[in-house]
Structures are given as C-alpha cells and as structure tokens.
Design a protein around this nucleic acid. Structure first.
Length: 114
DNA sequence: GCATTGACTCTAG
DNA sequence: CCTAGAGCCAATG
C-alpha cells in the first residue's frame, strides 16, 4: 500500500520556499505564489501563511496582490514598511501606490513568454 | 473537527 | 478604469 507521501511538505513550507525564491528587486503576486504551491486559487492561503511566518526569514514584502497594490493591514504599520522595503530593493511605485508589475513581476520561469 | 476570519482573485455592472 | 458581490483556500480559536 502506498505510504503517506513523505515527499509532500505542507502548503506553509511550500509558500515559504516560493517567497524565499523571489530575487531582490522583484515582486510576486499571491496567486503566483499559490500557483507554485500547487493551488492557484489559494491566494488567500498564501496570505494566511505569511501572517504566521512573517517572523521567519521570509521576504513577505516582495509579495503583493494581483494589482501590485499592498493589501497588508495598515494598522500594524506594515503597509508603510513594505513600501519602504520595496523602494530600498530598487522597486518603483505608481502614483496610486502600486508596484510596477510590468517591471518587477517575478516569475518561476515555468511559463515564461518572450 | 466545526465555525470564523483574512496580507486574494474573478466576474459582472 | 473602478466598485460591488460571490467564491476559494488555509490558518486560527
């Protein structure tokens, strides 16, 4: 009988690995990270994981929503922190406070056009 | 183990 | 292009 798949790490770990794989000066969307995790519809799950692993060595600030906007709770001051960190990473912001996804959109290289 | 919440995304207007 | 509503997934109590 098939063993309980020992090579199936939890989603959390996969999200951590995906986010950690994001190079400096680049940003990825929750849906992109979720897709790499195996669930393209688990965009919310990614946020849930990040909120619980933010204390780890995880560049959570490189993760933005599909519009490139920072959907992080501002009451914790994290929104300003993320924007500051991204600006320090050489990431540009739009006048609306959104990241230039056309310029910093990170991809896994699995489905790269061009 | 069920119910609620939340750093999302999609479709429709 | 922006707003509104519904759906999906995972974490937490």
């Amino acid at each position: 009988m098939p063993k309980p798949s020992p090579s199936s790490p939890p989603f959390s770990e996969r999200v951590i690995a995906a986010v950690r794989s994001i190079p400096e000066g680049c940003v990825a969307t929750y849906g992109e990270v979720a897709a790499v995790c195996g669930s393209p519809r688990a965009a919310r799950g990614v946020g849930a994981v990040l909120s619980g692993r933010m204390e780890a060595d995880l560049p959570w600030w490189r993760v933005v929503n599909r519009s490139g906007a920072l959907t992080i709770p501002s009451h914790l001051g994290l929104r300003s922190l993320q924007r500051t960190l991204l600006e320090k990473e050489d990431v540009g912001f739009d006048v609306d406070g959104r990241v230039d996804l056309s310029r910093h959109r990170w991809t896994t290289g699995a489905d790269e056009v061009d």
